[in-house]
Design a protein around this nucleic acid. Structure first.
Lengths: 218, 218
DNA sequence: CCGACGTGGACATCAAGATCGGTATCCAGA
DNA sequence: TCTGGATACCGATCTTGATGTCCACGTCGG
């Protein structure tokens, strides 16, 4: 499945017949195309504003085709959320495992986040900006995701600075959100700085706070 | 209007008549009650999941009553968002104006945020967790709100540390989100620490980062 | 050339927003 | 205390839009 922003709904080509019809595709290909289209559509307008008709039209097929590949709108949406979170989690894990030095780790995770926001803005908006509260499962799933990261950060943070684990988790979660927000802000104001500059600022802010936690602890 | 979480929908008392009907109320009182009820309902289930029937039922009145007080669902929702943001903005402004010392200012704004999350959780969820993307106006309004705060932080931050204003705004926005997220986390894990302890941790993290920006600037 | 499968226009179904005509309650004044 | 009008309230209904399905049609492999 291609989650990059560049995939476009195909155009029906006028062939020998002037009858407009989507070209026949292999099942998997069609499914992938529908997923990508749905991702973009949802990210663009949110869950409720985006109808199945819209998605089908954007994909250049009719609605029944959509229902042949997915049992319903809800499942389609959940599949996309799940895919995105798994993807991002894997990348963050990878960033974390890339080094043993905490400073490098933090830098790497910040980089991963900026990368994600820059290169997969639809996926990001789908998961972090859309109406999550509507589906409790999604809210739980996202909570889960955040707790995972916060826990990791806490386990890195806590022992070093003598803070109770839950409080370290709280700070970790706040830090993640801080990075994410800053990344989005930068993506919306790309002219303000290069990505590298922006990341560096964010890192200094975060790392500075973390270091102080260590030094200042009484 | 009462935004506290304690207001409950009234129960129709079985009087001389067994015919269930909401007691007659003064227009303003009824309106306030509906607003409060709607706030709780929206915060609980999100915009789209909450129907006008739900709100009316929760308020113990019938649907037409709702439409006698508000032109539509959308307007009702927007009114609540606006009210909440104005309220919070005022409180933050007040916190900022309370002192000339930046350190105190930051502490005070953190305190205000924790206060908000703790005492008005519905209002907070309504504005910051619900489906904002659905209504562009809401997204814009919220953007506006954040930019206001970020701008203030930037103007405190920027001149002192020589960072371009836009980058300072990015960091300011990230910091706000960090505080907010931590506050929510604490509210969900109240047993992990007292509010004061939690706020102190958050402050140290934030202030540490800010200080480093100052010191470390090359 | 033909059967099977992918495709789509049209439609049933339903949930939710919005409304209308009638009913109950309160109050002011005689 | 009676009466009439004004105001708040409600059951029932209309309307819209979106989800999910049916049956005919065209296209491709054999």
């Amino acid at each position: 499945m291609n989650l990059q922003p560049n995939s476009q709904p195909e155009q029906t080509v006028a062939g020998t017949s002037n009858y407009s019809r989507a070209p026949r595709m292999a099942k998997e290909d069609r499914r992938d195309q529908l997923l990508t289209t749905a991702l973009n559509a949802f990210a663009d307008g949110g869950y409720h504003t985006t109808s199945m008709d819209d998605i089908a039209a954007a994909a250049g097929v009719s609605k029944p085709v959509l229902y042949q590949h997915f049992p319903g709108k809800r499942e389609l949406y959940l599949a996309l959320v799940e895919y995105t979170l798994v993807d991002l989690s894997a990348k963050l894990d990878h960033s974390l495992a890339a080094s043993d030095v905490n400073r490098i780790r933090v830098e790497s995770m910040i980089d991963t986040h900026f990368e994600f926001v820059e290169h997969q803005p639809q996926a990001h908006r789908l998961v972090f900006s859309a109406d999550l509260l509507a589906f409790p499962e999604v809210a739980d799933r996202l909570n889960n995701f955040y707790d995972g990261i916060a826990g990791i950060i806490a386990s890195v943070l806590g022992p070093n600075v003598g803070i109770p684990h839950t409080q370290a988790a709280m700070l970790g979660r706040g830090l993640v959100q801080m990075v994410q927000t800053a990344a989005v802000y930068w993506a919306q104001h790309p002219e303000s700085a290069t990505r590298q500059e922006a990341q560096q600022q964010v890192f200094r802010l975060a790392w500075g706070g973390i270091s102080i936690l260590d030094e200042d602890w009484k």
